[in-house]
Every structure is written in structure tokens, then in C-alpha cells.
């Protein structure tokens, strides 16, 4: 793995497995919403101007801002 990829790097339709959450104020919120390491995420929609993003995780649609998505690191 050369560069660490985050959820924000996914294109609509692409999938990845969450590897790690970067320490952040919102880590707990993301965990509670089901963004746990080992879970599959799929990028679904991107809002106008490229922010916020909408992902599918644990079987439902979750919208989050780009800055928040950047703290979720993935393996593709």
C-alpha cells in the first residue's frame, strides 16, 4: 500500500473495506453509525460541488461530509 486511501477517494459504485478510523472528534459517531473496521462501504452519491457524500454501509445509506469521510481509511 503506497498512499493511504480513504472513503472520500472512492468513486460512485466503488467499494472498499474499512481498515481504520483516524482519531478524530467524530470517530465515536462514525462507529456508532456502523462504520466499523472490517465493514464494507460503497460510494453511492456525491452532492453538487462534490460534498457531502453518500455511502452504503451496514445495509443503509449514510451521508457524511468529505472531511468526515477522509478520516475513514480503507483497503480496496
Amino acid at each position: 500500500m503506497d498512499v493511504l486511501k480513504s472513503v472520500a477517494d472512492l468513486k460512485p459504485g466503488q467499494k472498499g473495506i474499512i481498515s481504520k478510523l483516524q482519531e478524530d472528534e467524530l470517530t465515536l459517531k462514525l462507529l456508532e453509525m456502523g462504520c466499523l473496521p472490517g465493514t464494507e462501504v460503497e460510494m453511492c452519491h456525491v452532492a453538487p460541488f462534490g460534498d457531502p457524500l453518500c455511502i452504503r454501509v451496514s445495509g443503509y445509506l449514510l451521508s457524511l461530509r468529505k472531511s468526515e469521510a477522509e478520516t475513514i481509511l480503507i483497503n480496496c
Binding site: 472528534e25 462514525l30 453509525m33 445509506l61 449514510l62 451521508s63 457524511l64 461530509r65
Partner: peptide, 10 residues
């Protein structure tokens, strides 16, 4: 206060 938008789209 950090603003966030971690929200379910039902």
C-alpha cells in the same frame, strides 16, 4: 463547536 453532517438517508 465542530459542525458535522453524519446522517442517515432513510
Amino acid at each position: 463547536g465542530r459542525s458535522f453532517l453524519i446522517m442517515e438517508l432513510p
